[in-house]
Computed example of a mutant assay.
Amino acid sequence: MHAQVIAVHRNPLHGFSKTSHPFIDLVAGQGVLDDTHAGVTVQHRSRVAKDPTQPNLRQVHLMHQELFEEVAAQGLPVRPGQMGENITTAGLGVLALSEGTLLRIGALAVVQVTGLRNPCAQIEAFLPGLLAAVLDRTAEGALVRKAGIMGIVKASGRVQPGDPITLIDAPAMHRPLQPV
């Protein structure tokens, strides 16, 4: 299976879930047009409260369809967009990507991977048991975050379900993703 977009979502208001749309427009340096998290500087309320001048490394949130299947098998039915992602992917090992990886999504849009989404208590408030389902531990006890990845928009473009996702560049040395 080739990596592709399954669904796209945005929400102009702060809230946990995002509404599915036929397409979204990614804007270089900003994020998703008409999404509350778009901007050059941080838009997440908790981060704005700490330092509103921080660069926005969370302009676009990508989450893998495979996670929805995994949590559904645990009795936690969640649909794309409900966990707040902008782009639901399939066939792309998002969690194994390197920080700095460039992804072409659709014909024109390019997203640079910045790091992992750090799942928060809002996930548990949305659906009890979901926070534990999107976290894991390695054999050594290290925390594994499975709630998708974050990125910044490097090139503008329209993205819609069915669009291919292509890895166009990755750092020469793999840099494991850290929460951003």
Rank of each mutant, 00 (worst) to 15 (best):
L127R: 15
Q178V: 14
A7Y: 01
V8C: 02
N86I: 06
M83E: 09
L76Q: 12
Q4C: 12
K18S: 05
R145V: 00
P77F: 07
T89A: 04
V159Y: 02
D136Q: 09
V32G: 02
S46E: 11
T53M: 10
G162R: 12
K146A: 10
L92F: 01
G151Q: 09
H21F: 11
K146L: 14
G15W: 01
P176G: 03
V110L: 04
D163C: 13
P164W: 04
G100F: 12
P52T: 07
T89G: 02
E70S: 10
A142Q: 14
D51I: 07
L26Q: 03
P171K: 01
F16P: 10
S17G: 08
V5D: 04
P52K: 10
F23Q: 14
I123N: 03
L92W: 00
K154L: 11
A147Y: 12
P179N: 08
L131Q: 07
L103I: 02
A125S: 10
V134W: 07
S20R: 03
L95N: 09
F126C: 05
G141T: 09
K18A: 05
G157N: 01
V153E: 00
L130Q: 03
A28P: 09
P77R: 13
S156T: 14
G129K: 08
P179I: 10
D163A: 14
N56P: 10
P12M: 06
M1I: 07
H64Y: 04
F126K: 01
E140P: 05
L130I: 08
A28H: 09
V40I: 11
A90I: 00
P22K: 03
V78G: 01
G93A: 14
E69V: 12
T36G: 12
A107T: 13
A155Q: 15
I165P: 02
E70F: 05
T41E: 15
S17Y: 02
G39H: 05
H174G: 03
A7P: 05
P119E: 07
M150G: 11
K146M: 11
R117H: 12
F68Q: 07
A132W: 01
E99D: 12
S156L: 04
V94H: 05
G115A: 10
V159C: 04
A72W: 12
F68R: 01
I123F: 15
T166E: 15
D136N: 15
G75F: 09
A121V: 13
V113Y: 01
Q65T: 06
L135E: 14
L26A: 02
L108D: 11
H2Q: 14
